[in-house]
Design a binder for these strands. Structure first.
Lengths: 283, 283
DNA sequence: AAGATATTTTGAAAATTTTTTTCAAAAATA
DNA sequence: TATTTTTGAAAAAAATTTTCAAAATATCTT
């Protein structure tokens, strides 16, 4: 949807001099309109009220009221400034707000480094895999578990291994047609990298999900899915990159459901109905 | 800044029955107010116009006009796009892009229903807890595991139980000074609700993380942390609400680290250095 | 427990403010 | 100069806010 400012810019040539005064004032004082009545604005712009209504109509709105409402909506997004670091005086709610900013930024960045081709390939390989094993340790363990959960719901044969011994064993027992997925933010987790290497040697297809850049895990991966987050503080948790990882798995899961044969879709419906008896209320 | 919805929730007890009708209607039809005049809203709520003005004033606003403007601002993110449906012709990358939109919207919405007071209370209770148990089943299991992982890193005594029998047992063995956290998007997962109820009976402090609205789990929780996502499609995965849950836990974790005594901070540093030997490269 | 009194809550109607429409004058264009 | 377009003051309409008395509720008294 075209924004108000953009519309103003586009329609500017068609306006008369009085309407242009309104356009100019609004361009300079966008949000300020929210607190003004139509005649206050008319005074500021040096024009009549009727001209303001006409101006609003030109933008495709019903009148001044709607103009104000629309600008209120649009300025809500713009208003936020860009500070990141958590201060020791921050309330927990403050920290939450900063975190969700981080997440939004990381997701946008990931969009720029995630290859459309690679993720499409990954989704299809997983969809048709005989067996899927997912490796994640420590911080990435919950991502692996989450992915397992999703794939199981889609009727796939998936297991997450979050223990380095189990990973090594599982990797060595794979075959051609199987898929091994390694999750590691740094791409340098010894055990996960080794497990992926082993998996590849068995003939399995290997996929990694890791932060953008050179890393050991890429060398052992047939398909590389990159995230991108510029975390500097508390990087151990790599919170926002993990959200990006989750989003990638979610997209793959959704894709598989959409492209699956009836049986797999039924598996999802089955999973949902199975849950109903476990709820006090029926959603 | 406290959101309108939060203010409504907080001031609800002080309202008379007519004002509550407005509060209820608004909670259910938040954005819809933008298109309504005061008497249209009065009709819908079954009350007089004056009551709506009084209601607005109670929220600290000058009147109905400002209420409408404020809601327009807050619903800006929600209003755009809404829930983006995934089409069967979408590429995996397309789906990813739609997903990250959903996530951004859910996070913004959660900001408006998450009570600053409650999350602050939760963080402090957890920080000083003798023992923390976290309950999550199915979809919420990975969130519980993630939270456990974070709290362990902060040097806290935390365990996640993702099995209904273990949850029941663990809950019954708590004491005053312990904290039980239940994670459930619907707030209606029988086993988690029961475990939280049991936990409370032992004298433990109970916290729930659930989607905004009435739900069984609230009744057994001393502290309620709300998320908000309007998922209609693929609601079984409740993806975006889970991201919001993760962000809440992350904020609490970060807050605890910031406010902990030296020992706990050292515990984090310890955890980080312990990981270094497990990496091929040093970050 | 019943009744009386005070307080609070409420909405209809009046008052006010805001927005929109009308229309003739001014400006621009042909 | 004639025609069209643009404009704003004033009128009309609509929306919002205020006032105030009735209704509901709570508190006190006996």
């Amino acid at each position: 949807m075209e924004s108000i400012l953009l519309k103003i810019k586009r329609l500017y040539p068609e306006m008369g001099s009085s309407e242009r005064k309104i356009a100019d004032w609004l361009t300079a004082n966008f949000q300020e309109i929210i607190g003004l009545s139509i005649n206050e604005l008319a005074t500021r712009c040096g024009c009549g009220e009727a001209t303001i209504v006409r101006f609003s109509r030109r933008l495709g709105l019903s009148g001044y009221q709607e103009l104000k409402l629309k600008i209120a909506q649009e300025s809500a997004n713009t208003a936020q400034g860009g500070v990141l670091g958590v201060e020791s005086t921050d309330s927990c709610y403050d920290i939450f707000n900063k975190r969700i900013r981080d997440i939004a930024v990381a997701l946008e960045n990931t969009k720029t480094v995630l290859s459309p081709d690679e993720i499409e390939k990954a989704a299809n390989v997983i969809k048709d895999a005989r067996r899927i094993v997912i490796f994640g340790l420590g911080n990435s363990a919950s991502i692996a578990v989450d992915a397992q959960h999703k794939f199981l719901r889609a009727g796939l044969d998936a297991i997450a291994y979050c223990d380095n011994h189990m990973q090594a064993i599982a990797a060595s027992h794979l075959h051609k047609g199987d898929v091994a997925i390694g999750v590691s933010h740094s791409g340098a987790s010894i055990d996960v990298v080794d497990a992926l290497k082993t998996a590849r040697e068995t003939g399995a297809t290997t996929i990694c999900i890791t932060n953008f850049g050179e890393s050991p895990i890429n060398e052992h991966s047939d398909i590389v899915l990159n995230t991108r987050s510029d975390e500097t503080k508390y990087t151990i948790l790599a919170m926002s990159s993990r959200i990006a990882q989750l989003a990638i798995f979610d997209a793959i899961y959704t894709y598989i459901v959409m492209h699956s044969n009836k049986a797999a879709v039924r598996a999802i419906k089955d999973a949902e109905t199975a849950l109903h008896s476990k709820k006090y209320i029926q959603n």
